[in-house]
Simulated assay, not measured.
Amino acid sequence: MKAKWWSCVLALLCMPAEVMPNTRTVLQSPLTISNVWINSSLEIKCSTPQGDPIGLSLKRHFLGDEQILYLHFDKEVVTKNTTADKFLNRISITEEQLDPGVGYKFKLSLLEQKDTDLYYCSWVYIDEKYNNLNLESNGTVIIVGEGGPVKACSLRTVDLTLICLSIVAFTGILLMFICLMIVRCRRFKKNFTPFRGYAPPLPPRPSRPPRPPRTNQPRNIYMQQQTVNHCPYMMTSTHDYGIFGNV
């Protein structure tokens, strides 16, 4: 299937040069890529505004421009001349009324993975010189995959479920974070100790002088003794040193 995917991409980029100028005169739908499932069906509409074609071919590109079917127009009679064996009983044709122009709808049924290919329409005309002129469309890439279509309802249910789960998870995480912050704040307040600046120690208090002993002497005599004791550098002498006096 990977080879098929790359083939589809290369087919869109490497279409024959002679096909591109003719896209203005022939139309095909659906355009670009169409994804379908095994055993499903797909309709391809081919139309042209030019009248009086002599034939219409539905071809697939990846297998060497294999012709799936060919319709021959003879005035108002339409004849299906050939049909590929791979699409026997799997393709139906419906004519569409266009004014002006001609259109046909091909319905491919019971598609398989091997039907993955680029399908395009080729209208056959006769020019002024009675030569066959083929006008080809860009084509439609049909990719047939395994499995079945997924209902839109189930997709919406899954999306809503994922959104609700995301909201619930976010709310739960937010509540847990708030509770954790509250617990930490309470623990911090409980164990909080205010900061106290450094205070230098107080100097020691001076000691009080001892009380004088109680004696019967008068208080003034005690004070004189105390004064003498506080001035030890003063000395008295009975010697006479002459003119220098007492030292």
Rank of each mutant, 00 (worst) to 15 (best):
F177L: 08
N216C: 02
N134E: 04
G245R: 11
A84T: 01
Y120W: 14
E96S: 07
P200M: 01
N39Q: 10
L42D: 02
S137Y: 00
K2D: 10
P203R: 07
S57M: 08
Y120A: 12
P212L: 13
K80D: 04
T227A: 11
I68Q: 07
E136A: 04
S122V: 02
P204T: 03
H239I: 14
N131M: 05
V78C: 13
K2H: 08
P210A: 11
D117E: 10
S34P: 02
I173Y: 11
F192K: 05
V77P: 01
H72S: 12
L12V: 05
T238R: 11
F244I: 07
I33E: 02
W6A: 05
N81L: 13
I182A: 06
H72C: 08
G51T: 13
R208E: 11
R90W: 04
E18Q: 10
P204Q: 02
S154Q: 06
V141C: 05
L118G: 01
F195A: 07
I68A: 05
T25S: 00
N220W: 09
T215H: 06
I178L: 07
V247K: 08
I167K: 11
N81V: 15
L88F: 10
P194H: 04
Q28D: 09
K86P: 00
P206C: 05
P232A: 14
I173T: 14
V19R: 03
I143G: 03
N89S: 13
D52M: 08
G242S: 13
R184M: 15
A11P: 01
M15H: 04
L202A: 07
M1G: 07
D65T: 14
